[in-house]
């Protein structure tokens, strides 16, 4: 019995570590975008590398947790929900990694007047990820608090959508090449996708929480 509790604690710490990584990736997202907008490309690449490392480690942790949950037949009633949540949260990290990779590969020329808008977009995405991580943590310990976090994720996602739309309109009103406009528009989509993905996970989180309370 003692070993059961010890194993449980180990697994709890792995899930916590996984969520710490997700949160850190969310925070790094804003800072990395800022580095690029400020033209500090060396720091940008360094931070992007950190995001890739965190993504790899988070993948390993998620696989370990999944394996252990199955092998030890833990939380049989909520296992499907927990695994789904962890996998979808991993998609958030992937979206951050993908967006930064696109920036790194394309190295777009961002007009100075748009910089603030991009940073705002990345900031809202980052906030959505932070609230999501808090929500997932609450799912494990305090389900009553989950709706609050879900609500906040939805709020930041909507804010991000507003900024994204505004940015796109400005881009396409600018006197630049169409190809440049499309590239800048795609860049907006990539950054905005982080908040969108966070909202998708939060919706699943909401349903899983209702299931747990029945």
């Amino acid at each position: 019995m003692t070993s059961l509790f010890a194993r449980t604690r180990l697994l709890e710490s792995k899930i916590d570590e996984y969520l710490n990584h997700t949160s850190e990736v969310g925070l790094l997202f804003r800072e990395t975008v800022k580095n690029f907008l400020d033209g500090r490309l060396e720091e940008f690449e360094e931070r992007r590398g950190k995001v890739c490392d965190l993504e790899n480690h988070a993948d390993e942790l998620r696989r370990e947790v999944e394996r252990q949950l199955y092998i030890e037949t833990l939380i049989p009633e909520s296992r499907g929900d927990v695994l789904g949540l962890l996998e979808q949260t991993d998609d958030v990290i992937n979206h951050v990694k993908l967006a930064l990779m696109q920036v790194s590969v394309e190295n777009p020329d961002i007009p100075a007047e748009l910089g603030e808008g991009y940073l705002e977009l990345a900031d809202y995405g980052s906030r959505a990820v932070q609230e999501l991580v808090m929500g997932v943590r609450a799912f494990f310990r305090n389900t009553a608090a989950v709706p609050d976090y879900v609500h906040k994720v939805a709020f930041w996602e909507k804010e991000a959508d507003k900024v994204a739309e505004k940015l796109k309109r400005r881009i396409f009103q600018m006197e630049i090449d169409l190809s440049h406009k499309i590239q800048l528009g795609n860049f907006v989509m990539h950054i905005d996708s982080v908040a969108d993905q966070a909202e998708d996970v939060s919706e699943r989180l909401s349903i899983s929480t209702i299931k747990r309370s029945i």
Binding site: T8, R9, L11, E12, L74, F140, R141, N142, R212
Partner: peptide
């Protein structure tokens, strides 16, 4: 108690 889902399970 805000006990973790896994601890609650155990």
């Amino acid at each position: 108690s805000r006990i973790h889902l896994l601890a609650e399970d155990a």
